[in-house]
Amino acid sequence: MADIALHVLFFLFLAAFLAGFIDSIAGGGGMITIPAMLLAGIPPLETLGTNKLQSLFGSGSATMAYARAGHVKLSEQLPMAAVSAFGSVFGALLATVVPGDVLKGVLPFLLVAIAVYFGLKPNIGDVDKHRRMSVFLFTATIVPLIGFYDGVFGPGTGSFFMLAFVTLAGFGILKATAHTKLLNFGSNLGAFVVFILYGVVLWKVGLVMGAGQFLGAQAGSRVAMKSGAKIIKPLLVVTSVALAIRLMADPSHPIRVWLGW
């Protein structure tokens, strides 16, 4: 596509900063960056590929911030991140085969369910609870499954990782957020490699937005570590509902097409 004007790049930088801030706390940054790139005239496939590049900066930045503060031990969790990347590779490769309309149709309801769960469950805080699934089983099943989803479709990946860490791994919400960003980095990296091979990454746009993501994620992770569950829990609820509404607002959404709205 033609070279993008400077003011459009600045708009994308600001969108990425806001996305990085929100994503580092509750996930859902893609609901800002993907529409912003489409609005800037970037074709859909290049939007997906470039989104993975700039998302690497946000998830990587947040991961570093949480690791420095001791909320995630990178040396211990790298195998889990690698499994997430592995699942994402297969998701991205099979994106043209997997029925995307089914995922798009079901996703808003899953996000609302996550919002209801976190909104109504009063005992979710920063303290770890009882683990319901072994580390090995969690790594072998849940992690690659969500990574696969991120490669195939993407929106809501952070919310799904958060839900899994809280309900199955027994993590407190701040610890779950820290680990979510590391696994999200892995899934972003796996899909990004596939999109590079397909030649659909706009490097200048991705790097400019990546700078915004990096700075936004640094600011957001500091807010999350300062306030813990008090900020993460409500923002997760709001983000999940907002993403569900954003998806349903799309006239091409399968349910709206089916209902004739």
Rank of each mutant, 00 (worst) to 15 (best):
V112L: 14
M80G: 10
F136Y: 08
D250S: 06
D250R: 06
V201M: 06
G158R: 05
F195C: 07
S24W: 01
G210P: 00
G216P: 01
S252G: 10
A69M: 13
L78T: 11
M80I: 14
P35Y: 05
E46V: 12
L182M: 13
L174T: 15
F138P: 02
A62W: 01
R132T: 10
G58L: 09
L236D: 02
S159V: 03
N51T: 12
V106E: 04
V102G: 07
P144C: 04
L94Q: 13
A40L: 13
L163Y: 11
T63L: 02
A219D: 01
T180Q: 09
F195M: 03
F86H: 05
D150N: 10
L120P: 02
S240K: 09
H71F: 15
L137H: 12
I245R: 07
A69P: 07
V106Y: 05
P155L: 04
M80D: 00
L163R: 08
G20Y: 08
F21V: 06
A224F: 01
L103K: 05
L53W: 00
G170I: 10
S134H: 12
P44C: 09
A244V: 06
D150E: 12
A36C: 13
M80A: 15
P44F: 08
H179Y: 10
V8L: 13
F86L: 15
P144V: 05
M162N: 13
K52M: 08
L207G: 00
V201C: 05
I146H: 02
V89I: 15
I255C: 10
G41Q: 12
A217G: 15
L18R: 03
V112N: 05
V241H: 08
I231F: 13
G154T: 02
M209K: 01
Y149R: 07
A219E: 00
L74V: 06
F13S: 06
A164I: 05
S55T: 10
G170K: 05
F11H: 07
G151L: 01
G91M: 06
L137R: 15
I124V: 13
L174Y: 05
A178V: 01
T180P: 03
D23Y: 07
